[in-house]
Simulated assay, not measured.
Amino acid sequence: MLRRRSHSKVGSTAPSHEELLRLVEAAGTVADHSSLRPWRLIELRGDARDVLGAALAEAEGASAGGREKIIAKVRRAPLLIAIVAVYRPSGKVPHWEQEAVASGVAHALSLLLDEAGWGVLWRTGSQTRHDAVREAHRLKKNEQLLGWLYVGDVPGGGSGSDASKPLRRKLVDPADHLSSL
């Protein structure tokens, strides 16, 4: 985890659906109060990315030229994985905690993908709340899009956690974030 980094640019190869299933199975072991499994993931490959790009363009009110730029940005990765919080009825587990589980699955999956040698970047933004983007993902009323993992091979070879490359982000001072009562 100390070597993990986000990759804003990835190559044209992505893990197969079968490889992704194994990683999702492992990511699904995150702490989950009442075992509600309040999450789901959506694979976007090929032309499905254009559907997302068009919805993002609509969300941003983009012109025709702007629309093409947005679609091109979405196509920068061969695989996008939409992270969806699925709010389940519960008297014990509030929505914020269910969303935390979905976020935990996404983070665990990003670590697993990195460990497997894939480049990963988690993108979010206000567009996740726009009706056009919700419709493109066919979200139900009890679902909320949290963002997308952009996944592809690491340019120049190596893995996402290649120890030979310097860290781009300074490590935290743990004493600044850990206290006692």
Rank of each mutant, 00 (worst) to 15 (best):
M1G: 14
R3G: 12
R3Q: 15
S6T: 15
H7S: 09
K9D: 09
G11I: 02
G11E: 01
S12E: 08
T13D: 12
P15H: 08
H17Y: 11
E18A: 11
E19N: 04
V24A: 05
V24H: 00
G28P: 02
T29N: 03
A31W: 10
A31T: 14
H33F: 10
S34L: 05
L36C: 09
R37A: 10
P38N: 11
W39E: 04
R40E: 03
E43C: 10
E43K: 09
L44D: 05
L44R: 09
D50R: 14
V51F: 06
L52S: 12
A54N: 15
A55V: 09
A57C: 10
E58S: 09
E60D: 11
G61F: 03
G61H: 07
A62K: 06
S63G: 04
G66I: 09
G66L: 09
K69P: 01
K69S: 10
I70D: 00
V74A: 15
R76T: 04
A77V: 06
P78A: 11
I83K: 01
I83Y: 01
R88K: 14
K92L: 13
V93L: 02
P94Q: 06
W96C: 10
A100L: 12
V101A: 00
G104E: 00
A108L: 10
S110Y: 02
L112T: 04
A116Q: 04
V120C: 04
R123P: 07
Q127A: 15
T128W: 01
R134P: 01
R134G: 00
R134A: 02
H137I: 09
L139D: 05
K140D: 07
K140M: 06
N142D: 13
L145V: 13
L146E: 06
G147T: 11
L149Y: 03
V151F: 12
G152M: 07
G152Y: 02
G152Q: 04
D153S: 15
D153F: 07
V154C: 03
G157Q: 10
G157H: 09
S159L: 00
S161W: 02
S164A: 14
K165I: 05
R168G: 06
L171A: 14
L171I: 06
V172D: 07
D173M: 08
D173G: 08
D173L: 11
P174M: 04
A175L: 09
A175N: 10
D176Y: 05
D176A: 15
L178S: 13
S180N: 10
S180D: 10
L181C: 12
